[in-house]
Amino acid sequence: MSKQNDIMIQTSQLTMGYGDNIILENVSFEIIRGEIFIILGGSGCGKSTLLKHLIGLYQVKTGQIIIDGDDITLAQGDVLQRILNKIGVMYQSGALFGSMTLSENIILPLEEFTDLPKSACERIAALKLKQVSLDGFEQYLPSEISGGMQKRAAIARAMALDPKILFLDEPSAGLDPITSAELDQLIIRLSRILGITFVIVTHELDSIFTIADRVIFLDKETKSIIAQGKPQTLKQRSKNKFVHDFFNRQVSI
């Protein structure tokens, strides 16, 4: 396989922000097919902003985002739809539709984008829930299950159309260490078994060292990437003081 085929997401010279407020400037990076890629940084450095631009919720001011060969920055109509069908997103809050059962949440995209009969959609929904260890909860409403289960259900919904890439926004936020570790194991399992590329925003150090293949580190001051590589390598060798402190849980005085 050529190097180009190995690249799942390629970004070049991205500048983004809200209105006149520029959050990130001239950011470029690549995400390899099948890897677990983590976006890191301090609070307010633009992690979630970058994620929202990568999934097409907002338009970048300049630059290009290529997802599996398609340019999402220019995409509209059917092309945009094709790209969106390649990705799944799990939001920080889970964002499950509160008026629908877990099964109906997963069936929704299946009904819309496939011609599968209802019974098949229900079966697939049950399988997706089983993949995240939520079998038996098909008819529960999101409000009837715990926060950790909601996050797993949100991952199951994000996987409804068998996407090639899953974007997760702070999956461990608000979870206890055991639930958080279970979620990490789920991510690793899905990555290894299904070959899904994961792009994750988090600052949970335990999760980062457990699951990450590669990380990029965003900086609020320079509005750019200040480090990238394997987390262990960065922890041991990064010369950037902020990165070093971050990985070693130190406070600069």
Partner: peptide, 17 residues
């Protein structure tokens, strides 16, 4: 409005719906 605050609208958009 509550769906928007809970990011459910964003979830719909990123599903292509």
């Amino acid at each position: 409005g509550t769906m928007k605050v809970n990011e459910e609208i964003n979830a719909l958009k990123t599903m292509g719906l």
